[in-house]
């Protein structure tokens, strides 16, 4: 599969992901989620430099009281990395780059501008997603599949913010194509 290949049918791949979620709940009792792993990692990093500060920070202790280290979800997120790495290498679609095609067409090669957008985008995204209490995995997949009100509200927020910001970045014609 090349870089421009069509990839696997998204309906089938998505459907299989849905089956995987059901099996995960049945076998391990765990719904998918990703953003809580960022809280754990941040807490563990801060613990190295300022352990007292972490034990005095209620938000970290909220999670560390249950389990002070890595948990199911942390390994799940690490697994996404390895699964993608294996799949990309076996299918020949691994590509070492910091510049997505759509970005390149609008702004040219990566460099500091791509770094700044990605870094601060990540910062705003994780701040927001912790406020919302879940990401497109936790609220999106797991929440929507349970037909929860919180999941739908969060998804409305995700796409409202995303649709507006994408227009602001790429202009009203959406960067052509």
């Amino acid at each position: 599969m090349s870089q421009t290949g069509k990839g696997m049918n998204p309906y089938i791949a998505g459907g299989l992901a849905g089956v995987l979620l059901v099996l995960s709940v049945l076998v391990a009792g765990n719904y998918f989620g990703a953003s809580t792993s960022y809280v754990r990692t941040t807490g563990l990093i801060e613990q190295i430099v300022a352990p007292e500060h972490v034990s005095n920070t209620s938000y970290f202790m909220k999670y560390f009281e249950k389990d002070a280290g890595i948990d199911w979800q942390w390994m799940f997120v690490l697994g996404i990395f390895f699964g993608s790495f294996l799949s990309a290498n076996f299918s020949g679609s691994y590509k070492w780059t910091d510049t997505p095609d759509r970005w390149k067409a609008k702004f040219g090669s990566g460099g500091s501008k791509r770094f700044l957008y990605a870094f601060f985008g990540g910062a705003i995204a994780l701040f927001g997603v912790r406020m919302a209490g879940g990401c497109p995995s936790g609220h999106g997949l797991s929440g929507m599949a349970q037909l929860s009100i919180s999941g739908l509200l969060a998804m409305v927020g995700f796409f409202a913010g995303g649709l507006i910001m994408a227009r602001l970045i790429y202009g009203s014609n959406g960067g052509g194509k």
């Binding site: 990540g122 927001g128 912790r130 406020m131 995995s137 409305v156 995303g162 649709l163």
Partner: peptide, 22 residues
């Protein structure tokens, strides 16, 4: 929290182009 936090996530998502797992 879900609408405001979700909206903030959306803004960051469009800048980054990935979500926490992806």
């Amino acid at each position: 929290a879900q609408l405001i936090g979700g909206g903030l996530f959306g803004i960051g998502w469009a800048m980054l182009g990935y979500c926490p797992g992806t």
